[in-house]
């Protein structure tokens, strides 16, 4: 009997040990939140969040994480600027709404906080980002020169930025294209760069307009700041409709002539023979009646 009790005790002990081991195995993963600030044309300010976690020794982007984003350094409801859920790439975008403009205008630099709540798989997580407000002005000069300068808000005064490189290019469907062989330009003491537009015969819209872009990307102080302007330096794109052209993929009645000729001659040939044979039946009938 005693031995039996001992066995039972051992069994319970074993179960407890295995539970502890299992509980250790089932430790929650840590979420790493990344936050980036973007200012486009000095009109659209938004935050771009990325959520990843190290799972089985590899970083993986995590989908479906609910994020809360705050302005200022306190995570109180009054500072909440938006909520988002990460997409399949573990990314989410949050626009800075007009409702927080008073807080936004109150300081030349801003702090943003992003948080994720506790879930079954992950612990709660938090990250913050402090930026200095900056903007880019873009213009053109004679001889197809693009001038751009970047200014940062220092003590309520827009002051030229000196410690950054700027990209100047032209917007295309698949990304931005350099306007000449130089990719980025060091900013001078006035916070300005000048780039010569050397591209020839670049397709534009129907009026030949293309979009120039100047930007400072993922800067530690200013985030990503870009500005665009449209100029008529491209080739005019004329849309030619092929709706009425004859082709194998055209609409009804617009098949290629060679196909029509072939198809109709075969049909006419074979049905000509059949009509001839039906006439032969009529002949046989006539012979029978005579």
């Amino acid at each position: 009997m005693k031995i039996h009790i001992h066995y039972r005790f051992l069994l319970i002990l074993l179960m407890m040990v295995s539970y502890v081991v299992h509980a250790q195995d089932a430790e929650k993963n840590t979420l790493l939140l990344g936050l980036k600030y973007n200012n486009h044309n000095n009109q659209e300010q938004y935050l771009h969040a990325q959520v990843k976690s190290k799972i089985n020794g590899k970083f993986q982007m995590i989908e479906g994480i609910k994020l809360k984003c705050y302005i200022s350094d306190e995570t109180v409801d009054a500072n909440l600027i938006g909520q988002a859920i990460t997409n399949g790439k573990g990314e989410a975008t949050i626009l800075i709404p007009a409702s927080v403009q008073d807080v936004w205008k109150s300081s030349p630099s801003q702090t943003f906080i992003i948080t994720s709540g506790k879930t079954i798989e992950y612990d709660a997580s938090r990250s913050d980002l402090t930026i200095t407000k900056a903007k880019i002005k873009i213009d053109t000069a004679e001889g197809r020169i693009i001038n751009a300068n970047i200014l940062a808000l220092v003590d309520s005064v827009w002051t030229p930025v000196k410690d950054a490189d700027m990209f100047v290019g032209v917007k295309r469907l698949g990304g931005n294209l350099n306007v000449n062989e130089t990719e980025t330009y060091p900013i001078d003491s006035l916070g300005a760069v000048a780039a010569e537009f050397k591209l020839e015969a670049i397709p534009g819209d129907k009026n030949g307009n293309i979009v120039l872009i100047a930007g400072v990307y993922e800067n530690d102080s200013y985030g990503t700041v870009t500005a665009e302007m449209s100029v008529p330096w491209g080739e005019k794109t004329v849309y030619v409709s092929n709706y009425d052209e004859r082709s194998l993929f055209a609409r009804r009645g617009k098949s290629p002539l060679w196909l029509e000729l072939m198809a109709y001659s075969i049909v006419a040939g074979v049905w000509g023979v059949l009509i001839y044979l039906i006439i032969q039946i009529r002949k046989i009938i006539k012979l029978g009646v005579e």
């Binding site: 074979v270 001839y276 044979l277 032969q280 039946i281 046989i284 009938i285 012979l287 029978g288 009646v289």
Partner: peptide, 23 residues
């Protein structure tokens, strides 16, 4: 009903069958 086993009928019919066999 019109078939009377006339040689001309056979001739036309044979010709028709040959044309059909080719077509």
């Amino acid at each position: 009903n019109y078939w009377k086993n006339k040689p001309e009928q056979f001739r036309i019919s044979e010709k028709a069958i040959n044309i059909l066999s080719i077509t």
